[in-house]
Nucleic acid binder design. Structure first.
Length: 776
DNA sequence: ATATCAACCCTTTTT
DNA sequence: GGGTTGATAT
């Protein structure tokens, strides 16, 4: 399987792979084979004295990590690839934090609060402090706190941070520092960390425990970071902590694709990498293997308009290609029709499969129009983003039970389920519990254990109801660290009364809720099953939760069921490529977003976002805009985006309408380049970090059809007893067809190495694997 | 303690 | 346009 992979690289790529003596920065233009360099570099390191666990490879998404692991497995084998420390910052540091939690005053099974948990907690703190919710918007406050954490500013530091305080005062929210401090303590009380804490506490762990730091420094002898342009200060600092001694660090990224500053990402990390690591070698990958020359040139001419960047000359040696088509529509609906018509044309005339098409937009709200247009024509599509599976009410409810079984001190889970299903425990009672808990600095669960001891004298009825809830949960808690996630999960859903609640009537909404809960349960079954097969016995509820809490929509099994047109935001398209790309909604106030105001930095980020959009296209790229569209229920008239003007018109096929061309030109003067002013940490405008709420009912059910309840127990239907031989072919229930490469051990412990056609090489414990032997 | 209805904000992007 | 919140009534 091992090929002489070094020969497959071009000169620059090879140089980047082979240089491992000190820090290096690989600037990888769009489509320049970045992933290839990373995978080959890791394979090379493994071939040259590094053990898999010596390598820390940080990626932006779980999906990217998974795919890269698979590619590396093909070079060095599944077994070794699996032992790599490869994953997102959040998931790998979570692993470290689990192991070292006690040093930080947490248990090893602390909860992870998601964004909405954080916001709810902040909301209740604001209420408790009797502040005006209109002034102190939970979303805004959360963004401030998140920003502070991403800059490693603790509550204590924040309280004395003059600049931050002045900024808060200027925004009319001087109490943010008090909210922050309370929030911090409440999370600790609940044995919970939010997303940002996973980074912040990792930093603190390394800062305050030099022995621990030394241990991980010694282990991670080589550190690689993908998508470095999207790292924040905390991430940057942790990498620095780990790499400080050996300085074997390689960061890969493209400053032109830095698009996550709203989340704290700091493009300066990549722009000034050589200030931190003065001896760093710089490699530039400038040959684009993805797109036509026209697309590459158009993208270059666009990004040239940005001042803050590392200069590079991306070029393509593919065919010249067609100019980028620009279409105008009179309304958003017509825009949908135009795009759909064009897709049908290409599908018919050039026999492009539907999976070759992507419609990219700035905001999720735009998806609806295209969805409707496609549905009308009966064309297959898949929408990414929107309300994710794990954010649906019924799924969150179930997960809240799971969370509390694992960590009874979890305040947000407690509040969610104490009266769901209805048990007659109302807001007043819960309010009293919260006040008592906060006063005594203990968790809600602790107060529940003995309300009287905390000065709560409930009437008899209430005491009984609280008691019943406590006993229900005590049962789950007792099982949480012995029974497997699936079996316990099923019991919890049944015994908690959730299933009855949902199963009440068969209204369509309830039906869909039921399906979602069943889907969750099936997912837990798969999870346990997979762990068993791989001989990994981390199949507790706690293990399931820590895996699930860092998953996003993008990570869900992409069971490429057939060819479908892809609809997604430009952000989520990062790292992907399509034969044909439509970038829609090219209008002022939409793309660039109206939020940029007069900030040159923000405008440059929007321009980079547009750059990302265009460079997803391999062959055809189209830009569309509408003269009018519905927004907030009102008709609005817009004008073409100034970005249309940033692209050299040689590469565009503009609409013929002269008046429209003039309209585009009018905006030419508006582009102002950055003045190199560095925005301060705390003065950037806050982003109301409201979780968007898409219309669930309109999102087609993208989840796998329910496996009917045939699976009752995790270990019930394995294929034990079947004798396997090298060279045979099998059909695995989940992984599909594969060839047996090797079989070791015998009886209960026999283990097979199998190369699957779709998912690569895997090792499975035959005792648990579910498959059948098939003909070649 | 729940159900219903009217204001109300809102739409940037997500690990 | 639509989903969430807050005030009412039962």
């Amino acid at each position: 399987m091992k090929t002489n992979y070094i020969d497959e690289l071009n000169e620059e790529q090879r140089a980047a792979v082979l240089y491992n003596e000190g820090p290096s920065l690989v600037i990888a233009g769009a489509g320049s084979g970045k992933t290839r360099v990373l995978t080959y570099k890791i394979a090379y390191l493994l071939d040259n004295g590094y053990q898999p666990w010596n390598i820390l490879a940080l990626t932006f998404t779980n999906k990217a990590a998974r795919e890269m692991k698979e590619r590396i497995a093909r070079q060095v084998g599944e077994e070794r690839a699996r032992r790599l420390w490869m994953g997102t910052f959040h998931s790998l540091f979570l692993r470290i934090l689990h192991a070292e939690a006690s040093l930080l005053g947490f248990t090893s099974h602390f909860t992870i609060y998601d964004t909405s948990d954080s916001k709810n907690l902040i909301r209740s703190i604001i209420k408790e402090m009797k502040l005006d919710e209109k002034v102190y918007r939970p979303g805004t406050v959360q963004a401030r706190i998140s920003n502070a954490k991403n800059h490693l500013v603790s509550p204590a530091a924040y309280a004395t941070h003059r600049e931050a305080y002045e900024c808060d005062c200027a925004m009319g929210v001087p109490a943010v520092r008090d909210i922050y401090s309370r929030y911090w303590n409440r999370c600790r009380q609940a044995d919970a960390m939010d997303f940002d804490d996973l980074l912040f506490y990792t930093f603190l762990l390394f800062r305050d425990h030099s022995d621990v730091l030394a241990r991980y420094q010694a282990q991670f002898r080589y550190i690689l970071v993908d998508e470095y342009q999207d790292t924040n200060f905390a991430q940057h600092s942790i990498v620095l902590q780990l790499a400080k001694e050996h300085r074997h660090v390689c960061v890969v990224g493209d400053d032109a694709q830095s698009i996550y500053s709203f989340r704290g990402a700091d493009i300066d990390n990549i722009l000034y990498f050589n200030k931190i690591y003065p001896e760093a070698r710089l490699f530039k990958l400038e040959r684009n293997y993805r797109s036509t020359q026209t697309i590459v040139c158009a993208a270059n001419s666009l990004i040239e308009k940005n001042a803050r960047q590392i200069r590079k000359e991306v070029f393509s040696e593919k065919e010249c290609g067609e100019p980028i088509g620009v279409f105008q529509a009179y309304s958003d609906v017509e825009e949908g029709d135009i795009v759909v018509k064009k897709i049908r044309e290409l599908h018919r005339d050039e026999s492009c499969p539907y999976s070759d098409f992507a419609i990219l937009y700035r905001t999720n709200a735009q998806s609806r129009i295209f969805e409707e247009a496609l549905r009308k024509q009966g064309m297959p599509y898949r929408i990414y983003g929107g309300l994710s599976f794990y954010q649906r009410k019924e799924v969150k409810d179930a997960i809240a039970y799971f969370r509390m079984a694992v960590n009874p001190h979890d305040e947000e889970a407690f509040k969610r389920i104490i009266n769901y299903p209805a048990r007659g425990i109302g807001d007043t009672t819960v309010g009293k519990l919260i006040v008592a808990a906060t006063e005594h600095h203990v968790s809600l669960w602790t107060v529940l254990g003995n309300p009287l001891a905390y000065g709560l004298n409930f009437n008899k009825g209430t005491v009984g109801k609280l008691q019943a809830f406590r006993e229900l949960m005590t049962g789950f808690i007792a099982d949480a660290f012995t029974r497997n996630a699936y079996e316990l999960g099923v019991d919890i859903i049944r015994l908690s009364g959730m299933m009855n609640e949902i199963g009440q009537d068969s209204s369509p909404e309830n039906l869909s809720r039921k399906e979602n809960v069943e889907e969750l349960v099936n997912g837990m079954n798969d999870f346990c099953q997979q762990r068993l097969e791989e001989g990994n016995n981390s199949w507790l509820l706690a293990d399931f939760l820590s895996e699930v809490s860092l998953l996003t929509d993008q990570d869900s099994e992409n069971d490429a069921d057939g060819e479908k047109i892809t609809l997604m935001t430009v952000h989520s398209a990062k790292g992907l490529e399509f034969m044909n790309v439509f970038v829609v909604g090219m209008e002022e106030n939409l793309f660039p977003s109206g939020m940029v105001g007069d900030s040159p930095r923000a405008l440059e980020e929007e321009r980079r976002l547009f750059y990302v959009a265009i460079t997803r296209a391999k062959k055809h790229c189209y830009l569309t805009y509408a003269k009018s569209r519905y927004r907030y229920g009102k008709m609005e008239f817009g004008c073409p985006s100034r970005f249309l003007n940033d692209i050299d018109s040689r590469y565009l096929a503009l609409p013929r309408d002269a008046a429209l061309r003039r309209k585009i030109d009018e905006h030419a003067g508006q582009v102002r380049l950055d003045t190199n002013r560095k925005t301060s940490l705390f003065s950037s405008s806050s982003q109301g970090n409201n979780r968007r709420s898409a219309d669930v009912s309109s999102v087609p059910h993208r989840l796998k059809p329910l496996a009917s309840s045939g699976k009752t127990s995790v270990s019930a239907t394995s294929s034990a007893g079947i004798r396997l031989q090298k060279g045979q072919f099998i059909e695995h229930e989940r992984f599909g067809r594969g060839e047996i490469l090797n079989v070791e051990g015998d009886g209960d412990n026999s283990k097979a190495t199998i190369r699957f056609e779709n998912v690569g090489v895997k090792q499975l414990l035959l005792r648990f694997a579910r498959f059948k032997i098939v003909e070649k």
